[in-house]
Nucleic acid binder design. Structure first.
Ligand SMILES: [Mn+2]
Ligand SMILES: [Mn+2]
Ligand SMILES: [Zn+2]
Ligand SMILES: [Zn+2]
Lengths: 143, 143
DNA sequence: ATCCGTTTTGCAAATGGTTTGCACTAAGAT
DNA sequence: ATCTTAGTGCAAACCATTTGCAAAACGGAT
């Protein structure tokens, strides 16, 4: 049994061909993938796949905590397998995304939770800036 | 001269009645305001105001660094006057937003920049969770 | 105060990612 | 094999934001 299927079974939701395929695609993606691209890839293996099914599966997978949607400042959301806290730097020049580990310990987290009387369930940290290549380009341009 | 107008003059962009009004509305807003709401308020003072003008003004104001758009996990963006780094906690129950100061020093920032060879120009940190009221409701519910 | 080149506005229409209604199909329990 | 219910495919709807264009307004120079 494929890994994606195993994940789905554990979630208790119905294991459909489509969900397995979609989750498998996300699983095999290095980096972050948008819905439309999942759809494109899925249709290659399952030509009747519909874009709505992709969106609906993504909703379910998110709710089940298997997949995470992230806002990279683009117009569309991107998805990845949910894993240990990590965060993103997005290059404003070329869109490249670099991942890095969570820089705040649990202590900081619980200090913030306590100070603000807030139960924290999710952290999203996104830095934006310029990668080496785009910095070079910026320097070269005289605008 | 009103504060909003002063800010605009300093930016060097044309100072139009609409931009002043829009910036003034954002200025007077406690918290975070969406485009549509700016539009609604602006139209009260200037009935011919158009929603496109609001959006176009917001783009300019953002580019000029006077205003910041933030993604609070809703479907729409929210805007506020740009100020010292601060971040947001959003309650997943009621949508309430709490602001808090930046918990990482400049050192951490430049360490991240160095380690990843990335020039960091913007930081966005958003925590999600539950406020006291919504926590109580959750506890009460037996679902 | 007036003129003029350029920017900005208002309006309506377009865009485009995401959602939804509905009839049909397939998962999983018995 | 049968039944119940959740999930799918398709097309249409949604809706926040963007865009084309002609008219209006800004601001520097006269
Ligand atoms: Mn990631
Ligand atoms: Mn804020
Ligand atoms: Zn880059
Ligand atoms: Zn709440």
């Amino acid at each position: 049994m494929i890994k994606a299927e195993k994940m789905l079974r554990q979630s208790g939701k119905r294991v459909t061909r489509q969900r397995v395929l979609i989750l498998d695609i996300i699983n095999q993606t290095k980096g972050h993938i948008a819905a439309e691209e999942i759809y494109r890839l899925a249709k290659q293996k399952s030509p009747r796949m519909s874009l709505s099914t992709v969106y609906r599966a993504l909703q379910v997978l998110k709710k089940e905590g298997l997949v995470e949607g992230i806002d990279l400042g683009n117009d569309r959301y991107h998805y990845e397998i949910k894993r240990q806290d990590h965060h993103h730097m997005v290059c404003r020049g070329c869109g490249k995304v670099i991942e890095f580990q969570c820089p705040f310990g649990k202590e900081l987290m619980s200090r913030l939770a306590e100070e603000n009387d807030f139960e924290i369930t999710g952290v999203s940290l996104t830095l934006s800036g310029y990668c080496p290549e785009c910095r070079r380009k910026k320097a070269g341009n005289s605008n």
